[in-house]
Design a binder for these strands. Sequence first.
DNA 1: CGAGTGATTGACGCAGATCAAGCGAAGTGG
DNA 2: CCACTTCGCTTGATCTGCGTCAATCACTCG
Lengths: 243, 243
Amino acid sequence: MTTPCSACPLRRREHFVEMTRDEVRQTEAFKAGEMTIEPGTHLLIEGAGSAQLYTALSGMGLRYKSLADGSRQVLNIIFPGDFVGLQAGVMGEMKHSVVARTQMTLCVFDRNEFYSFVRSSPNRGFDVTWLAAMEEHFLGEALATVGQRDASDRIAWALVRIYQRGQALGMVNGGGLMPFPFRQQDLADLLGLSLVHTNKTLARLRRHNLVRWQDGQLAIPGLEPMAEMAGLELEPPPRRPLI
Amino acid sequence: MTTPCSACPLRRREHFVEMTRDEVRQTEAFKAGEMTIEPGTHLLIEGAGSAQLYTALSGMGLRYKSLADGSRQVLNIIFPGDFVGLQAGVMGEMKHSVVARTQMTLCVFDRNEFYSFVRSSPNRGFDVTWLAAMEEHFLGEALATVGQRDASDRIAWALVRIYQRGQALGMVNGGGLMPFPFRQQDLADLLGLSLVHTNKTLARLRRHNLVRWQDGQLAIPGLEPMAEMAGLELEPPPRRPLI
DNA sequence: CGAGTGATTGACGCAGATCAAGCGAAGTGG
DNA sequence: CCACTTCGCTTGATCTGCGTCAATCACTCG
């Protein structure tokens, strides 16, 4: 039923760094099982400890924090290959929640094994650190975007970042479309904007034919000007390790 | 001239987790030297690779990103005991800059040794991961604050967080004052506010006798209501590893 | 004493929040 | 098969928190 790591379809993608035979074996030993969840399901809940850690195999979701007044900050989007639950792994408790936006399949790991997994090989420990540092970098960029840029620049930043990730993962089809199973409210909560203003700003980007987003699919005809607005280079993201 | 790790004054503080004799020895071996820099000196520059990593021994500074339009996002504040340069360590290039706001003394490590240091003991590797995860958590909280809260709540959040950190490090003196060698512009850039609005909001907090900040010293007479505004609990932060 | 740096305060304007209403598509149940 | 609800998207009107501009003040320093 479950995919063995040796046959993992993600590992083949060149977006991920190769693993040695030993690393595959260690990961396989770490893996406790596989699970599939439906859209809208919460995988992890803020404040709760979790006995499991996950790697997304397919599907998309998002991480968010909710505040006392009921508002919500989306921290980032979860793509296939993302390692989920590191905070619970090292700190014992999640500081944000994770919810699925499509059906998702996930590798399940046992939190109790995490420490020994990291020990198992210094390379794997280093990989986890690399992922954490990358996440830190991403959040810093998000903070700079939300703190310093106006609405259209923020939207451009988010969409370009997401699209780049989709490209790296081969999720963009021949027509330049990638799956984008989110609501405008999700984008608004990611960028610190109201839903209404997000909608109006998106409408403007659409009118200028910079963005196409409908039926859960995203295309960016104006990728270059959008990246320009976002202050981003159009380079493929670095290859990342897979846990 | 340089302090041996075995005599490190920080390690004694209970804010930091104890280290085994072996860990102290490994860290000592990793340490390449010590340096002191003056206020305003840039320790690391965004985009540049760095041959060194650092741990702050004394003094304070801040990390920031600068944007194309000249604006600046402060990512966080550097306290004694903070490990600086992890991104350069794992990714080869800094994604933000670091500048000193007081005179700072720093332990210097050689980036080339970083990988073998992490290997040297699985515990030390885990510590680095822990720090990265903590940083990620902090940035997530900052993002939620900047994205979702109004000016006075943002300021309350930042000042309470900073003050808590100061308490944990024993930087708060009998009068409830801690050193706070920053400008209002720094706080504004941390919180995504303009200098003017930051100033006016601070004035209001001062009038209500919630905050005292002058001559580079900070006190929070209204710590409880401030924490309430900030949506924070008044617990001491978790003990952190020291690199 | 003039120059530079940071804090402060008032006046004004706007980006974006809030309020409100309507629309189409997809259930759902009687 | 048709009312009725729900959910997400859209759009107009109005309001406001915060940005911007500009001037002043207190200090420090050469």
